[in-house]
């Protein structure tokens, strides 16, 4: 029992997380730079023009990647929230706390890139009949709700548990909102089936670029979240011996 769960208990130690991520970060940075460069250069310079959309289809490579990533925030926060409520693990809350603003930013970026693409392809910046726009907007609002709840509660531990509960409820709600808005009405094109044939509308040259970009954005998310969490650890543990030693070393 002790052996099997040791990794889980270690994860609860901010110091352990800090030391591990110090080693991981260079690799993550490197991988992110690589994927981001390959994805962007490919999308912007080498991707052939879409037969209908022309150059605007290049925006989609970024948009799809950002949109896909932004959907993972509520599940992430709900899992972290469950860990906070059940095991009272400080680290889970530090991650959740920093995930909320990042998630709001990603949702905003999704709406922004989608609008820019839509303004050219659909001829409108905003379209209420499109279900994904609307449900993303309400996900954005819910994330703002989590952020403002965190800001309003002064006691850090109460705030952690309140936000944990709200994240779990919100996670269920985002799914319900998604499907109800889908049934409400939808003119958004369904996800396009991908094709293996080079030169076809959704051929490999397009979707592989998108996949590269999705990996790049997920790595970006991981790096940002880890950096923010490390900051949070240093702030909350500033009285701990190891943080003081770290500060002295840096000097």
């Amino acid at each position: 029992m002790a052996g099997r769960w040791q990794w889980f208990h270690r994860l609860g130690s901010p110091k352990w997380f800090y030391e591990k991520t110090t080693r991981w970060l260079p690799w993550l940075w490197g991988a992110m730079a690589l994927f981001l460069t390959v994805g962007l250069v490919w999308a912007l310079l080498f991707l052939p023009e879409d037969y209908q959309q022309g150059h605007t289809s290049r925006i989609l490579v970024v948009h799809v990647a950002v949109a896909g990533t932004s959907l993972s925030f509520f599940p992430l926060m709900a899992v972290a929230g469950t860990v906070t409520l059940v095991w009272r693990m400080k680290l889970a809350d530090m991650v959740a706390k920093n995930a909320a603003p990042l998630g709001a930013w990603f949702s905003f970026l999704t709406l922004a890139t989608g609008s820019i693409w839509g303004s050219v392809s659909w001829g409108t910046w905003w379209e209420w009949t499109d279900s994904r726009l609307v449900s993303m907007l309400f996900q954005f609002f819910l994330l703002l709700g989590v952020i403002s709840l965190r800001a309003a509660i002064e006691n850090a531990e109460t705030a952690a548990r309140a936000c944990a509960l709200l994240s779990i409820v919100g996670c269920i709600n985002v799914v319900v909102i998604k499907y109800s808005v889908d049934w409400w009405n939808t003119l958004h094109q369904p996800s396009s089936p991908i094709s293996m044939e080079v030169g076809s509308p959704n051929g490999p040259e397009f979707w592989v670029a998108t996949v590269v970009m999705i990996v790049a954005v997920y790595l970006f998310l991981a790096v940002s979240l880890i950096l923010a969490t490390r900051n949070e650890i240093l702030q909350r543990e500033s009285r701990a011996q190891w943080v003081r030693e770290l500060a002295l070393e840096a000097r």
Partner: peptide, 30 residues
């Protein structure tokens, strides 16, 4: 749920609206 989360707070301001409005969307739709 939202009220219970904010019950002890002096100024809940917009929090209640920001939390409950998105949650009410499916009900409004149907």
């Amino acid at each position: 749920i939202a009220v219970a989360l904010t019950v002890g707070l002096g100024s809940r301001g917009l929090i209640l609206a920001v939390i409950t409005v998105p949650m009410s969307v499916p009900v409004l739709i149907f």
